[in-house]
Simulated assay, not measured.
Amino acid sequence: MMRHLTKKFAFLLFFTLLSYSQQVVAQDIIKPGELWPDNNGNHVQAHGGGIIKVGKLYYWFGEYRAKDNDPTKRYVGCYSSPDLTNWTFRNKVINTGDPADFGNNFVMERPKVFYNKKTKKFVMYLHMDSGNYQAARVGVAVCDKVDGDYKYLTSFRPLGEQSRDIGQFIDDDGSAYLIFEDRPHGFHIAKLSDDYLSIEKEVCLIKASLEGGAVVHYNGLYYAIGSALTGWGANPNKYATATSLSGPWSEFKDIAPPETNTYNSQSTMMLKVVGTKTTTVIFMADQWRPNAQWDSRYLWMPLQIGDGKLVLPKPQPWKINVKTGEWAYVNETK
């Protein structure tokens, strides 16, 4: 009997350890459009997100849209990764009811975090709005710790204009910019103040009806991406180029075959990975599922970029070495 129990216990222990190892096993492949498990085996909840690097870790912030969320609250999730592939859940850095009297269906979207070296504060910008999207403001929250509990400070209309979708851009010289969509006028690029808590000045207004704004600086050119104003529905994202953030900007062109609607995705950021051997620019986008927001997926792909051209390849599994900057497709059938 004792031997039988010992054998039974050994089997139980084996399967328990096997299950645990499967849950936390490291991955080396990014699979666009598939479930992306964190260290706990849960789908990453960082929609409409942005990434900053602090030390050796990347931090991914985004809308935490889990199925069991309290419907009266809004959440921002924070995850960390050393390799942009394996993500560890850190905290719901925003966990709040309506902080600005926008009503029960208030909107808190597209969180973007900047680190201010002068104040040593992490500053988060958010799209803040009423349920009918008429408030059209940005919210600001701060924290002393990258993955701590952010304190909501205020909301305002940047430059006195409407602001809905927002994006972030940090130039190679460290200057920080907010990108925001102003429906009556266009696509703004605005420099943040010294403490990052307000807008210092407008750098450029691109007179195009675009949201989901993203900007990257690559080999002497600025590239801007945006999507058309079709709500949750995907559309052909487009790009333009300029030698200066202030423009003039080129005519906008499709980043992918227009019939694919950007492979059913919407831009949120272009992440530049500068390695020892090469530089890779990653297109970060959301594949929204409005009726099952917790199941919305992510489309991350390396862009074919340079000499004024930008192309989003057809999504397929790939991997990246963040130290060298090199990436490669992965044939999983081998």
Rank of each mutant, 00 (worst) to 15 (best):
W294T: 08
N321T: 06
Q287I: 14
T262A: 00
V322Y: 05
K272Y: 01
G306R: 08
Y329K: 06
V281N: 02
Y298I: 15
W327V: 02
M284Y: 05
A328P: 00
K309E: 13
W249P: 01
K238D: 04
I282V: 15
V274M: 10
S267L: 04
G233E: 12
S250P: 00
S265D: 03
Y239N: 05
N291E: 12
T280Y: 11
P236Q: 09
P248C: 08
W300D: 06
P290H: 15
A328S: 06
T230M: 11
Y263R: 00
E251W: 14
N235Q: 13
S250H: 04
Y298D: 15
Q316L: 03
W288S: 07
D295N: 15
D295A: 14
E326Y: 07
G231M: 07
P290E: 13
F283M: 02
G325Q: 05
G233M: 13
Y298Q: 09
Q287E: 10
M269Q: 07
D286A: 13
Q287M: 14
G247T: 02
G275I: 13
M301Y: 14
T324C: 07
Y298H: 13
W249S: 00
L229F: 13
L303Y: 14
M269R: 02
D295G: 09
Y263G: 00
P248E: 03
G247W: 11
W232T: 13
F252R: 05
P236I: 14
D295I: 11
L303R: 13
W300I: 10
Y263F: 14
P236H: 08
V330M: 05
L303M: 08
L303D: 07
T262E: 00
L312A: 01
W300N: 07
G306D: 09
I305C: 10
G308T: 04
N261Q: 11
N321F: 09
F252E: 03
N321H: 08
P257C: 06
T324I: 09
D286K: 15
V330K: 01
Q266G: 10
F252I: 02
R289N: 14
W249R: 01
A256Y: 01
W232G: 13
L312F: 01
G325D: 07
A224C: 06
S246T: 06
K272P: 00
T230A: 08
Q287R: 12
T276W: 08
V330P: 01
Y239S: 03
K319Y: 00
W294N: 11
Y239H: 07
W300L: 14
T260M: 03
G306A: 08
